[in-house]
Amino acid sequence: MGEQAASLSDQLRSYGAVPHEVPTIAVEPPRTPQQMERAVKGLVTGRYEWIAFTSVNAVKAVREKFEEYGLDARAFAGIKVAAVGEQTAKSLIEFGVKPDLVPSGEQSAAGLLEDWPPYDPVFDPIDRVFLPRADIATETLVAGLIELGWEVDDVTAYRTVRASPPPAETREAIKGGGFDAVLFTSSSTVRNLVGIAGKPHNVTVIACIGPATAKTAEEHGLRVDVLSPEPSVHKLAEALAEFGAARRDAAIEAGDPVTRPSERRPGSRRRARS
């Protein structure tokens, strides 16, 4: 998540924004690591035909286990690797592993299933897939793979927990309209930010990465102004920049003063990312 935040912040800076990262999710090891240990050993001994990574944190968890056992990317030899999302694929490449399958369409479990080949007993010597994931359920992916004829080892590789509250100054800026925009990259970032810092002020522009995140934001009483056309942090930043430019142009055309959302309320003039 840190990598995703850094990449998004760099892009926002390129648009002239001043990003302020507020971590809402902390990552912790699974409560019972034995399942993960067995799966990583199985990876080395040829138990799996595929391994599917749905997040950067899943890559990190497997990589840490590899390092614990003195293994490196060579242990992936002969195993097909799937990845959802550009950041996940990038973190695999940095580890020395080139993904065999990245969704050609939507970067999601559904997008991955659309491109995933059915199990073929002639061409696939092994029918098992290793899915290291968060403690948050991935029923869609598991059910879809089973339907395609695969056996799935659905393993909790890490847990996501609510992060500690940000400093009081940041909490006040969020609730008091001190930020121009808040960007949400998942439903859990919405729930956790509201839980640790309170609801963003109604002058603040709310930008969401996808429909599920937007729905959660609305359930928490937030007005969603910007919805990314694709589930990508880069597309989200682009959509926010376009929204800002359109709002500025409309104000100029109407002869109104061009003001930032934060200028309608006393407080800091920064742009936040959760």
Rank of each mutant, 00 (worst) to 15 (best):
G2D: 15
E3F: 12
Q4A: 12
A5T: 13
A6N: 04
L8Y: 02
S9I: 09
D10H: 08
S14K: 09
Y15D: 06
Y15G: 05
V18D: 13
I25L: 00
I25D: 01
A26L: 13
A26Y: 12
V27Q: 06
P29A: 05
T32R: 12
Q34R: 13
E37Y: 08
R38L: 14
R38H: 13
V40A: 03
K41V: 14
L43T: 03
L43D: 03
V44D: 10
G46F: 06
E49D: 13
W50T: 09
I51L: 05
I51N: 04
I51C: 04
A52G: 11
F53G: 06
T54S: 09
S55L: 11
V56K: 14
V59P: 14
A61S: 14
A61D: 12
A61K: 12
V62R: 09
V62E: 05
V62N: 07
K65F: 13
D72N: 15
A73I: 09
R74C: 15
A83Y: 14
T88Q: 06
E94G: 11
G96N: 02
L101Y: 00
V102S: 05
V102N: 05
V102D: 06
P103T: 03
E106Q: 00
Q107W: 05
S108V: 00
A110E: 02
G111R: 00
G111H: 01
L112E: 04
L113D: 01
L113R: 01
E114K: 02
P118R: 03
P118Y: 03
F123P: 05
F123D: 15
P125H: 05
I126T: 11
D135E: 05
I136H: 10
E139P: 11
E139Y: 08
E139W: 09
L141F: 08
L145W: 02
L148V: 07
L148I: 07
E151K: 14
V152I: 07
V152Y: 06
D153L: 00
T156D: 11
A157G: 08
V161N: 00
E172T: 13
A173M: 05
I174G: 07
K175Y: 08
G176M: 09
G177S: 06
D180S: 08
D180P: 03
V182A: 03
V182P: 02
S186F: 01
S187N: 04
S188H: 04
V190Q: 03
N192F: 09
L193V: 04
L193S: 00
P200G: 06
N202M: 10
N202R: 09
V205W: 09
A207D: 07
I209K: 05
G210Q: 06
G210I: 07
G210L: 06
P211G: 08
P211T: 09
T216V: 11
E218L: 04
D225S: 10
V226W: 06
E230I: 10
S232D: 10
K235R: 07
A239W: 09
A239T: 13
L240D: 04
L240F: 04
E242M: 10
A246T: 00
R248N: 10
E253Y: 08
R260F: 15
R264I: 08
P266V: 07
